[in-house]
């Protein structure tokens, strides 16, 4: 069953149910599928999580993933990763699993919808000042006037453009890959799409990594910038 035809650029255009303004699109459906898988695995594994040295394979896998995420956060933020793990880790896991599931026939990645990437980018957009303020208080806003107040508009513009860049980068990569696979299936249905699928998995993981790392960099830039100014002469 082809949910998304080639001429439909986004899964948002596939409406499954609609009650007035409430429209259940394919984006929402697959988002819930990804969320359900993540939460189910988390509950099943987390419920049996033990501090013993003998652990299950699933716990071992999740520990490797979580500790890798925390290690990356620690390297970038030069700080304890506890505050950022939930947000950054969830970004990575959600985007990564959304992209990995592309190998399932009939699946449409939620991240190939501009609405989803925009929602995630907006989350990052708001997370940056929230983390900044929680870390440094209102001194966070001083960053917009550094080195002089003239730079304030550029700072604000930078905030918007980088959010836009996050949004477009993820959407473009995943959507275009989805379309390339569809076109290649029509042109060379044997072998070559498999290679492209493998490449697509790599691209999907790279994009998930880039998105979450950039989010962490943005957050770290506001938490560490103030610290470096504070420590300065």
């Amino acid at each position: 069953m082809e949910i998304l035809s080639l001429n439909q650029i986004s899964p948002d255009q596939v409406v499954l149910l609609q009650w007035g303004v409430v429209r259940i699109t394919a984006t929402l459906l697959y988002t819930w599928v990804v969320m359900a898988i993540l939460i189910l695995v988390a509950i099943l594994v987390g419920r049996k999580a033990t501090a013993d040295t003998a652990i299950s394979r699933w716990q071992n896998l999740l520990e490797v993933v979580v500790s890798s995420i925390r290690e990356q956060i620690r390297e970038i933020s030069q700080d304890e990763p506890d505050h950022y793990t939930a947000f950054i880790g969830t970004l990575f896991l959600f985007i990564g699993l959304s992209n990995l599931l592309l190998i399932v026939p009939g699946y449409v990645a939620p991240t190939s919808s501009l609405t989803t990437t925009a929602a995630l980018a907006v989350c990052v957009f708001f997370a940056v000042p929230i983390y900044g303020i929680s870390k440094n208080g209102l001194a966070y806003f001083k960053e917009y006037f550094q080195p002089t107040f003239i730079f304030f508009p550029f700072h604000v513009m930078g905030e918007f453009t980088r959010t836009l860049a996050l949004m477009i980068r993820l959407f473009g990569n995943i959507m275009s890959h989805d379309k390339v696979i569809a076109i290649l299936l029509a042109v060379t249905p044997l072998f070559f799409p498999i290679v492209m699928h493998a490449l697509g998995l790599l691209i999907g993981m790279v994009q998930a990594y880039i998105f979450s790392i950039l989010a962490m960099v943005y957050i770290a830039s506001v938490t560490q910038a103030h610290e470096s100014h504070g420590r300065g002469p």
Partner: peptide, 17 residues
């Protein structure tokens, strides 16, 4: 998703680790 994963996944895994 952030809230659920924080409760079910990160906290427990980190605590176990």
């Amino acid at each position: 998703l952030v809230a659920l994963l924080k409760y079910f996944l990160y906290d427990r895994i980190v605590k176990a680790m």
